[in-house]
Amino acid sequence: MVNVHELWRTTSAIPFVGPRLFSLAFAQAAPYFATIRPRFTVVEPNHVELVIPKRRRVHNHLKTVHAIALCNGLEAAMGALAEVSLPPGRRWIPKGMEVTYTAKAVSDVTCIAETDPAQWTGSDPDLPVRVRGVLADGTVVIEGTIRLWVTATRAGERASAERGE
């Protein structure tokens, strides 16, 4: 599997096109993400941001960014966050999303996913990721939580057993 954080560091260092290259590569991992043309701007453990450009392809009948496009952006941000925050020997899968639409998305939307470092080291496999979508003027257009199920991989389980945990 590709190390997402290393891919970000490598591609984002390329002047002018680096973040776009990362965004294209990330969208190929889950092709549905390509439908929103995400532009990642921040990829760090516990904090990821991407922009969904407002364009006709993601409009609803009101000519604003469609609610499902917003959810797609939040899930892409959460997925990148999980990949760069996950400790070795662990795996994740999304198990649910709860969102509230708080305003019309009348322009590009920055999708933000955040966690606290301590969330990744606890024994509870249920891990909530805070997500929100924000316009350039600070208006929050969508906010909520994406719940992950985080467990040990088989290799991680063997290592824990060998350590007597």
Rank of each mutant, 00 (worst) to 15 (best):
V4M: 14
E6V: 06
R9P: 01
P15C: 06
F16N: 03
P19A: 02
L21R: 00
F22Y: 11
A25N: 03
A27C: 07
P38R: 00
V48C: 01
P53S: 06
V58W: 01
H59S: 09
L62S: 09
H66M: 12
A67M: 02
I68V: 15
A69W: 04
A69K: 04
G73D: 05
M78C: 13
L81N: 12
A82P: 08
A82Q: 09
V84L: 04
V84R: 00
S85K: 13
R90A: 07
R91Y: 05
W92D: 09
I93P: 03
P94C: 06
G96N: 01
E98Q: 13
V99S: 04
A105F: 00
V106K: 12
S107L: 02
T110K: 10
E114Y: 04
D116I: 06
A118W: 08
S123E: 14
D126H: 12
L127E: 03
V129I: 15
V129N: 02
R130L: 08
A136Q: 11
A136K: 13
V140D: 01
V141L: 00
T145L: 07
W149G: 03
T151M: 10
R154F: 04
R154Y: 03
E157S: 11
A159Y: 01
A161F: 08
A161E: 12
A161G: 06
E165N: 09
